[in-house]
Design a protein around this nucleic acid. Sequence first.
DNA 1: GAATAAATTGTTTTT
DNA 2: CAATTTATTC
Length: 781
Amino acid sequence: MNYLDKLNPSQREAAMHLNGPLLIFAGAGSGKTRVLTYRVARLIEQGVDPYHIIAITFTNKAAKEMRERISNITPLGEQVWVSTFHAACTRILRREIDSGFSIYDTSDTLRLLKECIKEKNLSDTHYPPRHVAQIISAQKNELITPGEYERLVAGSFREGNVAEIYALYQKRLRESNALDFDDIIFRTVELLSHNEEIRLKYQNRFRYVLVDEYQDTNHAQYELVRLLSGYAQNLCVVGDDDQSIYGWRGADIANILRFEKDYPGAKVVKLEQNYRSSKVILDAANAVISLNEERADKLLWTENERGTPIRLYTARDERDEGYFVTQMIAKGVANGARFGDFAVLYRTNSQSRAVEDQLVTSGIPYRIFSGVRFYEHMEVKDILAYLKAINNPADEIAHLRIINVPRRGIGLASLDKIKFFAAESGLTFSQAISRAAEIDGLGKKSASVVQFAAYLDECAEFAAENSVSELMQKILNDTDYMLTIKDGTPEGEEREANIKELLAKATAFENESEDTSLAKFLEDVALVADIDNYNEDADAAALMTLHSAKGLEFDTVFLVGFEEYLFPTSRAIDSGNHKDMEEERRLCYVGFTRAKKILYLTHSIIRRRFDHIARNKTSRFLDDVPEDCIASVNMYGNERTTRPFPRNAGLEVGEGISGAGLPPALAALAKPSEKPPIINATAPPMGFSQLKQLASGQKIARTPAPRPVPTKASPPDYSVGDKVRDPKYGVGEVIDISPAGADYEVTIQFPAAGRKKFMAGWAKLSSMEAQSKRKTEESEE
DNA sequence: GAATAAATTGTTTTT
DNA sequence: CAATTTATTC
């Protein structure tokens, strides 16, 4: 194969390397993927069985791209195992330990953690679940077990409690036969380091290990790589310390910087020629990144032309900022560009809204890769929870999620009783609900609980004989789920569309995947990110976070919100930790180097933040861009000649918006942006008939639990003027008693708590006057 | 007791 | 300003 002349000398040097450790420093746009794929092709050409090669990436998207490119060069490439860290580990764990475990995502994790904190009788204000989750995650990334953590923090009361929560959390995960994202790596490392037989098996299998984005590995992943490649030492890692942007997730830049120490005799190749960006863009990016201290010495250069100076636009507000973006895209497209040539990048997902609104009104096609991710939609999680509960009966979080979806009249109080029963009898949650009849105080409710348990059993049997999509369809039919999410609002329509999309995904999975089991489907679903669906062929502008944009390139990039407290974030500014700021700086470097031809930086004079209006200075990174690389532009994108671009003082406000001076086609687009569309609160009940139609054709298998009928309460045994006791508020005086439906509403004046209203049938009020007469309290229930 | 309406609170980035 | 916790209503 004559591919070597497609590589420059450094690239060739890396691609030709066969055995022993290899470190490739690959700057942005330096042809990293090309080198990796050619190297794999060459390994195969030199007689290495593709069966012995594994390539590990961070995202499915990167894995997919590499798989395709390898297969394009050599047909044998299809046999190479190309996978993400998490998918590879999941595969190993399923094969070696257990095939049925659940994978808990962030929200599952949080829910379980809340349970644990509650069970420990700790307050979640003093131990905020998010914060505790982060601490636990950090420990797992460092391969620190609960026991080790406990010893580490010995003597500290607070952290001691966190250690106990960590231990309980792990116990509960085990009982639920579930792993969180961090466990997937941790458990694989444990498996490989403790079990020599299995370790040798995989070391023998993976004689050639390639790792992409090595600068983003955390300690657990570092250990994993070390274990996998430990025998043959044919480890090739590719990375760029300047693009390490996942420090908050435990990524340790030191891993790549100390590679030569870890793997003595390692060959080091630096790819410093950039094929992507213009000189101007690269100069700016270099200027910004050079101010970081913790980095390997290198300098990216290019033979590309100098190009158009970076455009800086000062917007009035975020709407003007979004409007400017749409104008520039429209102008570009009018001059022959494709919508897909443009990307809008931002620091936080919340910034997407303003841009999105303007794109919608101007009719520019766009795709957004952020915000609520598909699998995090409530309705999608509900259906997936059914699948998870069926796939893994021990999965408590999945059961908790759906036990009252659709409404079965099982609320918090009933759940507490079930949990108490389970804990007392040493049963798992799913075992407990099958025996709900034995639970004290559940009363009539036990019937619907038992019915729910039986329904899941029925589904499990069904699942054994039928496909995932058929199972999903069955659940949707039986539970009337579509009817529960339709509420006549546009949101309801969206939920319905999401469910249909989920069904479509299941069908696609059955057609495409080799292993079509329910477990595999759930695994695929748990390990995908929105960005994985990025499709270069779609001709639409792309909106995404800077983080998501890593690895991508676009002709024109808009980096919006280039302001202090947004980018860099207030957190990085306030923390005062220079490491945080260095990571922001790397993120800026990543953002700049996504652009091939034109880079726009925009900032806004005023910006609505949560509940107030902020006036942010321009980003400090703007000060690091050389003057001759950048030009301030007006709302038409034309360079201002009279004044320098705004620095942190003397900001200029965009001169407002009009269509004057634009070609007719664009002038139409350039109408002053209207006020944000007003959402009609009394929207017609869209899709209702459609849904009814859908539901009517399908047999409903189970009858929904009967809606609890309010029982007629007997009049309270106290009257106006009496003193009564409430368990929460203490003693108070009865002000008023009036009939309300089947019950009576009583108003009580408490000395401390003030005036409160109760429903007599439910309130636990006891009369002080009629203590002795009180005897008919449990007449019902 | 569960469903719903009101109030509050807290916001980076993601496998 | 949205999603979650707390108060109110049935």
